[in-house]
Simulated scan of single mutants.
Amino acid sequence: MSKDVEYYAFRQDLYFYDLVSSFSVSLCGCPAIFDTQIPFFLSPQQNLSFPGQFTSAKHMNPYSLRRLAELEQIDKGAHIAWCCIMLANTAYESVRRFHDGSPEFEFFRHIRNASSHLNVFQFNHREPAHPAMWRTAVIDDRLKGEDNPLFGQQCFGSFLGVADLLDLLMDIERKIIIQLQQ
Rank of each mutant, 00 (worst) to 15 (best):
F98S: 03
M133F: 07
A137G: 13
L87T: 08
A81T: 13
R67M: 11
R109F: 01
I80D: 03
R67K: 13
Q153C: 02
V138Q: 08
T90C: 07
E72V: 11
E146D: 12
D147N: 15
W82Y: 15
L150M: 05
F159Q: 08
F107K: 05
C155W: 05
F159P: 09
Q122C: 02
E106A: 08
I85R: 14
L71C: 10
P131L: 01
L160F: 09
Q122H: 12
A78D: 13
K76R: 12
Q154E: 12
Q73T: 06
Q153K: 06
D164K: 05
E106Y: 02
P149A: 04
F121E: 00
S115F: 08
E127V: 00
F151I: 07
N113W: 04
S94N: 15
H130S: 15
F105P: 06
H117S: 03
L150E: 00
R112F: 10
R67W: 15
Q153T: 03
A81K: 11
D100Q: 12
F159K: 04
Y92G: 09
R112I: 03
R126S: 13
F123E: 05
Q122S: 08
G161M: 04
I80Y: 04
S115R: 01
E93C: 07
F121W: 02
I74Y: 01
Q153E: 06
A88F: 00
L71F: 03
L143A: 14
K76T: 04
D147E: 13
L71P: 05
C155N: 03
S102D: 03
F121K: 01
W82I: 09
R109N: 11
N113L: 04
G157P: 10
L160C: 04
M86C: 10
D100C: 02
G152F: 03
R96L: 05
L118K: 13
S158R: 00
H110N: 08
F151G: 02
Q154R: 14
G145E: 09
D147Y: 10
L87K: 01
K76W: 10
M133Q: 15
E127W: 01
D164W: 06
P131W: 04
F123D: 02
N124R: 09
D75I: 00
L160P: 04
N113H: 07
V120D: 05
G77D: 07
R97I: 13
